[in-house]
Amino acid sequence: MTEFSTKPDNTVLRASWRLRVKAFILDNMLFVAGASIFFLVMISAILAPWIAPHSPAEIVMSNKLMAPGIDHPMGTDKFGRDIFSRVLFGAQISLTVGVCVVALAVLIGAPIGLLSGYFGGKLDTALMRISDVFLAFPPLLLPIAITAALGPGLWNAMIALAVSWFPWYARIVRGAVMRVRKELYIDAARTMGVSHLRIMLRHVTPNSLTPVIVQGSMDFGYAILAAASLSFIGLGARPPTIEWGLMAAAARTQFLDQWWTALGPGLAIFLTVLAINLVGDGLRDVLDPKHGRRE
């Protein structure tokens, strides 16, 4: 081998790869921190049945309202249940709620936005005016009213949140569709006899995916917050479902003396939503060129 070897120098490559990871982590500390916390929450939700130190539902009156200690890291509630175990199981519900609300909102909003933006004209005006009405309520008030009408329950709360938030997705998709609709390749596809449906699904939809992902990642966290709020006032999850908002509501009667009863679920909601928001911010920086890097 001469010194002009064409063989790539692996040590340099490996070092640069390691450097790049390091640089990425340094540049995106918040994103990495958020992603790590979120990963942890997800793992605890999935592994809750195996890693929870106690049964989340077992009532042990002799253990009631114990302060945090080695056996009960977050203390126990008024029924002697281990709060840490309940927080782990609560992650299952909250993450599911977040995913379901965003998915439902996209499922309702995206087709409306697609039709509205693609066909324009009177259909567009009508659909958008109807969507606007849903935004005329102060946030959280419409979900509360809808859940009240449907009857309290986690499913109804999720439906209510999705119905209240779909206009945002309708607007986003509509905007994206209107941008690509006038492109030459869409006209070309039409001339070649491609059906409206196929154009919308194959050529227009992929173009609106990015803003929907960005908005969805932010709403994921807000959905968890809003659902917990609904549960807190008695409209969302009902016992014996283990849900963070419900745990905080139960803590209301004794949190002034036993502060830890509210701390566990409160911390869980805060950290989860914070992590999701940090990841969402990072996603927006990467995916949305217009938004650009923060300065």
């Binding site: 918040l30 966290g221 917050l225 917990a228 709020s229 807190f232 908002g245 905080a248 509501a249 509210a262 679920p265 409160g266 909601i269 805060f270 950290l271 939503v273 914070l274 928001n277 940090l278 911010d281």
Partner: peptide, 10 residues
């Protein structure tokens, strides 16, 4: 960033 993640009731 943290403010928007706090539940109002907490």
């Amino acid at each position: 960033v943290g403010g928007v993640a706090i539940p109002s009731f907490i």
